[in-house]
Nucleic acid binder design. Structure first.
Length: 329
DNA sequence: AATAAACCCAACCGCGCTCTC
DNA sequence: AGAGAGCGCGGTTGGGTTTAT
């Protein structure tokens, strides 16, 4: 037995709203409010619309002080940073941007912002792969290159932006430990200004979001929530940077920093892994098969990621540069 | 100029959560 | 306590518009 429909689907109008419908809805709500009952609202007004549709129309379009389009660079940065930190929790992101709706931000991210970043990444990857000495030497290298490009698509995007915007705020972050940075990254940092006001703002929001989540009541790993936080990225994508075999790049005790760089707020991770961050490689087991449905594709990518470790440092640096470039454009 | 492809965004859908009875 | 109603959210879709060929 399924859930009862919220309205009589046969007798409600669907599709775009007419100016008359907009006027009716707006006039009524401005005069009487919603009455706390969206389902009953259309009947009161005489609209043949579902209550949910009325609510959506009001919140996303008719409500006063709604802004459409024309996102500023600062708004871009906030959206990127929050997306990296908390994933696709559009309502929370929208709450930080007055006049913006979750739907608007979601559309903006999916249709423009993401592509803007990925487009530049693709170009960078193309340059990277075509550079002298970078050509794949054999079939397996080509496969690695493909995997790298796949990995770069979204998980690394969050990683890049995260390192740029949050690294300085995070005492445990890889990006706060210059001793383990590639030299070129240090040189680049010297030549850049960091936006600390924005950093504080983002850090505050991500801490709030993490604090809202009560993982103490759930001692088992909430992989579904972790996946949500990763926001749809496959476990294989996310495994990049978590690879225990990257010891040429990071000391074992610094794996914690790498985890933090993969898209989680510090507080979030503290709650996900309250006792497991002692740095031992064995503690990365949560990411493998134990308690987690790792698909064969994921395993393949894990293996592919493992083969990338010789180039990881260089790629991490290039990713960092690209993130900086993107955000300062 | 015609057509296809890509882009964009409003709106819909369904699920989970909260509240009320 | 638990069932049902309503709300809020994120994912997805449909179709109009723009751009490329």
């Amino acid at each position: 037995m399924g859930r009862a429909p919220c309205c009589d689907k046969a007798n409600v109008k669907k599709g775009p709203w007419s100016p008359e419908e907009d006027a009716k809805l707006k006039a009524y709500i401005e005069k009487y409010g919603t009455g706390g009952n969206w389902i009953a609202l259309p009947q009161k007004i005489g609209l043949k619309r579902c209550g949910k549709s009325c609510r959506l129309r009001w919140l996303n379009y008719l409500r006063p002080n709604i802004k459409h389009g024309g996102f500023t660079e600062e708004e871009d940065n906030i959206i990127c940073s929050l997306y990296i930190s908390i994933g696709s929790r559009w309502s929370i992101i929208a709450a930080q941007l007055p006049g913006r709706t979750d739907n608007d931000i979601k559309n903006y991210w999916n249709t423009r912002l993401k592509k803007k970043l990925l487009g530049r990444r693709k170009q960078a990857n193309a340059n990277r792969l075509s550079a002298p000495g970078q050509e794949p030497k054999d079939a397996s290298d080509e496969e690695n290159s493909c995997d790298l490009q796949n990995l770069s698509s979204s998980a690394l995007e969050r990683l890049q932006l995260h390192m740029h915007l949050q690294g300085l705020q995070n005492p445990l972050s890889f990006y706060n430990d210059p001793a383990i940075w590639p030299k070129k990254m240090i040189q680049t940092l010297h030549s850049q200004n960091q936006n600390n006001d924005l950093m504080h703002q983002i850090s505050s929001i991500t801490d709030q979001v993490a604090a809202e989540q009560d993982y103490n009541n759930s001692p088992l790993m909430k992989m579904d929530e972790i996946e949500n936080s990763i926001n749809g990225f496959s476990s294989s994508e996310s495994s990049f940077g978590l690879n225990p075999d990257q010891s040429d790049f990071l000391e074992p005790e610094q794996n914690t920093g790498i985890q933090l760089s993969s898209g989680f707020a510090q507080a979030e991770l503290d709650q996900y892994f309250p006792t497991e961050l002692d740095g031992s490689r064995d503690n990365l087991g949560w990411w493998s098969n134990d308690g987690f449905d790792v698909s064969s594709a994921s395993l393949n990518s894990w293996n592919s990621a493992a083969m990338l470790h010789d180039q990881t440092s260089e790629y991490m640096y290039q990713d960092y540069v690209m993130a900086s470039y993107n955000l300062h454009q």
